[in-house]
Design a protein around this nucleic acid. Structure first.
Lengths: 196, 196, 196, 196
DNA sequence: CATGAATGAGCATTCATTCAT
DNA sequence: AATGAATGAATGCTCATTCAT
């Protein structure tokens, strides 16, 4: 008779997981407004108290949500960073990678990008960490003379602006959906703007 | 019988005006959270009831706020559209104009960017109208062969992305402040991305 | 057809009154724990929001409650202060007066006396004002040599301690109820402790 | 097989002890509000479940806390009761003793004073037991004609009132700190009030 | 036109207590 | 004995909106 129940000392990781998933799900569907503590916990199938066992505050839950998304993406990007591909190709991969994570978590990203004012410092750090990775990439490529000579942070803004604005317009502004993959055209635009 | 009340023929547009100004003022200072119905009406010097006499809802007040800002900007841009300047110069002016309105109304814009989902159709229309103006510009320039051949809506996304992302990063991402005006460098980037 | 409804501009003082009364009533019955915002407003026949129209916080409501009770008592005591009665008689009246207000508001008093740590500054002020009145009385009597030479604040503590402890013991410690009026015996004890 | 666990014969009274100590420690530092079940158990180094293995409820833990404090004090006072000192001296010692326990456990005492209504009967008994001891003392002294003829319970109220009110005023009412010990002046006042 | 008191559902958070392990 | 995740009702408070005057 093998027991399917978790052992006493074994922390059930399910709840944290459920909470994070519920948060992303709700935010993706109905924007941040839909992601109240009540609705998150209902969606996760637990009570409000359970959230506060695992996270100090709603904000800390968001920190975890964002940290996970960005953290996973950052790992993949770090690999790319060391792959020493030609600049244009590298940028293309970078964008493809960004969209891979962006697509499933659109609203989590938007929340962070559009309302950082209200976010805690620890979330700000995760946010910056994401930016530093691009700056690192750009700086390396610049050292090899493969991209334009410009403030890497400005390059980051240009890159981030283009990459984030396009899906928004696709969604809400009437732009046609990606079809064969907008990525190519977006990479073109980014490359022209910051490439060599 | 000297009357201190406004003359019958004199339309008292004051209340609506005060409400709109109060909204922009509060949102610009303290973000969207500071612009509650209560604080808006207090700032405007009227009561909550008065707001609802003039606007169906808080949302409708925001529609008006946004319509006015974008409307005024659109007028200026329409002039530019007909001025037949060389493409690059025209784009530079266009950006300068955008920032002129954006700077004074950052939070009104951000609100729209952050939560368009919850805004009524009329706001969506205003939002699109702004985009159509750029599309019109781009199409004209394309007809003269002065910009790249690309989907004008994609150009809009690229343009909008760069233009909106840079001030954000300047503000919150640790980028150096505009100095004599980042506008030049932004225009460069935009031009490379979508110019000819 | 005389209208019984309040005029537009006329503030209905009822709600504030109801709130104050409900607070005293609940605190007197079930102690401070029974006086939650929810129960206070239910008892007053209004919703929670209504409380916050009239008071910035629950604490501010308590400030009003206490201010009213102490304020009314202080007025009566001020009269006594100027009546120039012989010390012992004056003290007796003072105690009688204290009980007159104390009896109807026992828990409001107890709350303030036993948990001042959590009270706002403005409540602290009201609290002190009550004490200053006694100190003033004691100082005057001392100047006439009718009471003992001692720190008036210590006298206040002795006076307050005796006066407040007796009803507590009557209520909860098994002391027999006042019968013909404990006041006489209490006045005796107080007089011996601080009189001349 | 060296065992690190306590020997079978050794009773592990640790948990109850830790719980009681943690409660007193927290209440003395941060008032009753700081003594939540969570913080008590964390301070004691156990979990919430452990508390409920040893006490039916939080209230029962407080009963134990209070019983211990008062019990220890009662033992000391019982010795004093049999020492047959002259009345005034005896009262002085009694007060000194009271403060010795009161000072280290101010908040435990205040809790009882503030909210006895909600405490179980067993706590009420402990509370009364404390009073009975004084009544016993007073009755003996009265039999020897060394104190006033008055209801011993009234004497208890007078005694208790003075003794409890003075430290409060010292702490919060702006009275000067005890210096070499207010005890002398307090004993004076008590003696005048109830002594012979 | 304007007032402003009242609504009532909503918010994030805390707490003593329970119970499967 | 002890664990600690989960409960669920309660807390003080905010907000856009309504309506009798």
């Amino acid at each position: 008779m093998a027991s399917t129940a978790p052992k006493p000392g074994t922390p059930k990781r399910d709840t944290k997981e459920e909470l994070v998933n519920a948060t992303i799900k709700l935010a993706s569907r109905g924007g941040m407004e839909a992601a109240s503590v009540r609705s998150i916990t209902r969606e996760a199938g637990v009570t409000e108290g359970a959230l506060y066992r695992h996270y100090r505050s709603k904000e800390q839950l968001w920190v975890e949500v964002y940290t996970r998304i960005v953290g996973a993406m950052a790992e993949d990007k770090a690999v790319l960073l060391d792959a020493d591909l030609p600049a244009r190709e590298c940028l293309g991969e970078w964008i493809r990678l960004t969209y891979a994570y962006y697509d499933g978590n659109r609203d989590a990203f938007n929340y962070v990008l559009l309302a950082p004012r209200s976010l805690s410092e620890s979330l700000g750090e995760v946010y910056e960490r994401q930016g530093r990775l691009f700056v690192e990439l750009f700086t390396r490529l610049a050292a090899r003379g493969e991209v334009r000579e410009m403030d890497p942070k400005l390059a980051l803004a240009v890159f981030g602006g283009i990459v984030l604005a396009v899906p928004r317009l696709v969604n809400e502004g009437g732009l046609e959906p990606p079809a064969s993959g907008y990525t190519e055209e977006i990479t073109d635009a980014v490359w022209r703007a910051i490439g060599n």
